[in-house]
Amino acid sequence: MTVRIDDYRSAVENHWCPGCGNFGILEAVKKSLVQLDLPPEKVVVCTGIGQAPKLPHYLRVNTFNGLHGREVASATAIKCAAPDLTVLVHAGDGGAYGEGGNHFLHAIRRNIDITLVVHDNKVYGLTKGQASPMTTRGTKAKIHPHGVPSNALNPLALAIAQNCGFVAQCMSARGDHLAATLSAAIRHKGFSLVHVLQPCVSWDKVHTYAYYKEHCYELGADYDPGDRMKALELVLAEGDRLPLGILYRTEQPTFEDLALSHLDAPLRDLPVDSGRIERLMPKFQ
């Protein structure tokens, strides 16, 4: 089977702002899925609400565009019911780390084989410029005219501390690097987090393309993603240098290994089979 970029072409009109970082991510996703030779009907993209979550509409792909912040929960169940499919979650920083923070933590614990791609533009774009959990403390925002009083989250440190099996950081304008990292994340068995830095051209005048060009650097071949403490050191470092690449990677049993091993077929394909109760009733005689 040879999958082509055109297989993912969507006829839906794109609603993003011109110059939005999401465009780079969209192209990289297509590129990665083609690289992996995954046809659209074998991929599910699960999203919530916001600008980033519109992404699957701009692809031709199975789509579950559910509730804000709940995309990881729904994706978990989709993977349980159809483990033969590749399940991607695309969420904004508000959905993934704000509304969906609890699901993020528990997805790491489960280590279910889904890939969470967080589009981090440090702002609530679709609702017009409120602070997100990634907004720098002190930043003036719509609901914080005198500055955001809370610290920004450090999701990379959180994920590494929780021994998340695959933790990467990318930048939306570095398409080839992003596509290659997404492919590695999708190939990784277990939960993977790809945190993508992206400029918001409408609401954020600080984190621009130029800003990221200046501050980002790609991890070299000498970097060992198996070194958890080194990875933590990197993501906890003070300063404005932003490492890109696979920060941490470790293999461990997946949720499917432990929770689906008793099934002969995907849950989706099982018949009703009421007769199953026959073998359970004798316990109650």
Binding site: A77, I78, C80, A81, R268
Partner: peptide, 9 residues
Amino acid sequence: NMVAGASYA
């Protein structure tokens, strides 16, 4: 939300 996801799948 898991119920909705599983049912979709």
